[in-house]
Simulated scan of single mutants.
Amino acid sequence: MDFLQLAGKPVLVFGVANRKSVAFHTGRVLQEAGADVLYAVRSEKRRESVQKLVGDAPVYVCDVEHQDQIDRLGDEVARDRDRLAGIVHSIAFADYSAGWLPFHETPRKAFLQAVDISCFSLTAIANRFREQLDPEQGSVVTISISTTRMAAENYGYMAPVKAALDSSICFLAKSFSEFSRVRFNAVCPGLLKTSASAGIPGYVDCYLFAEQATLRKQAVQTEEVANAAAFLISPRSSGMNAQRLVIDAGMEVNYFDRQLTTALAEHGTR
């Protein structure tokens, strides 16, 4: 049964780095649903490694910092597929090479690069592929974070960048509505075990705390995020547009969990 109604439909997935990537898991779920999945990765070296993971699926090279590469990708995809049913944007980059810094000391260059790659790339990709997306059922999904209102010191300037990404889906949805029914939504997971997150200073401690803050005492799994992304790509989510779909296992309602507060109180009395 083709529940997601994606059988044979081409979907372009950006952002696979390795087996831990949200993009990789999303592509796998889409393939299992019968979709014709295409991949876009950052470099030729990355293409070689990703090709081994995805078998015969097409893998293109596109560094989204460069508009000419986005334009070239559009031409290449148009040559191979007449139409796209959807695009998955799972791209984020932050330069933490300067180490942990308080937010007010954020390097301008690092912040602007993060905005360009992690946020503006969605707009640039959508604009380039606007003629190739199915005008009636096309869907674009980006991967954000569960909340941009939690001022975690180690996450730093990426939260404001993701806030801009969240806002962008609203404006893209409105803009595209002038000439199509293409939808834009975001999947917003809690803390995940990915290679990208491993580069964030102090991430492991935050991850372990977040896991205990969930209602089920188990962290969000990457497969759960991928399932949500596949649903948003599919026509089954046709009534959803300009939305953030939070996948955090109930964490946002459970910060005052009795076990957490008791442990903190006991620690403070020692």
Rank of each mutant, 00 (worst) to 15 (best):
F176S: 09
S168K: 00
L260W: 06
A98V: 07
A23F: 08
N227T: 10
N227Q: 14
L208N: 15
E65L: 10
D36G: 01
Y60D: 03
R236Q: 11
F209V: 09
T261M: 11
R47Y: 06
A196W: 04
R28G: 00
D56A: 15
A23S: 07
G190H: 09
E211F: 00
A164V: 09
Q132H: 14
W100T: 11
T269Q: 15
C170D: 12
L215I: 14
F231V: 14
A17V: 15
L6C: 09
L191F: 15
R183W: 12
G156Q: 05
Y203F: 15
E136P: 01
L38N: 02
G239K: 15
L172C: 00
R42Y: 02
T261R: 12
L30N: 02
G55W: 06
Y203S: 04
F171W: 12
D166Y: 11
F209A: 13
P10N: 14
L122S: 12
N18V: 10
V13M: 08
E44H: 10
D2K: 11
T269L: 14
N127V: 08
G15W: 04
Q212N: 09
A126P: 05
L38K: 04
H66A: 06
A265G: 06
S97H: 14
D116F: 00
A163P: 01
E153G: 15
L4W: 05
D257P: 05
K217S: 04
S238L: 07
Q51S: 15
A265V: 06
S197R: 00
A124V: 00
D248Q: 06
G199Q: 14
D36H: 01
D2E: 07
M240E: 13
T261H: 01
T142W: 00
T148D: 01
V88K: 06
R19E: 15
S237M: 11
E252Q: 15
Q67F: 05
F3W: 12
D257T: 07
Y157M: 14
T148L: 00
T26C: 03
E223W: 13
A173P: 05
A159G: 02
A230P: 04
F120W: 06
V41R: 03
A173N: 11
Q259C: 05
C119M: 11
K162L: 02
L172D: 06
S21G: 10
D75H: 02
G55R: 08
V50F: 10
S197H: 06
M1P: 10
F14K: 05
A40W: 11
P58T: 03
K217D: 12
S168P: 02
R79Q: 12
D56I: 08
T147S: 08
A228G: 11
R19F: 03
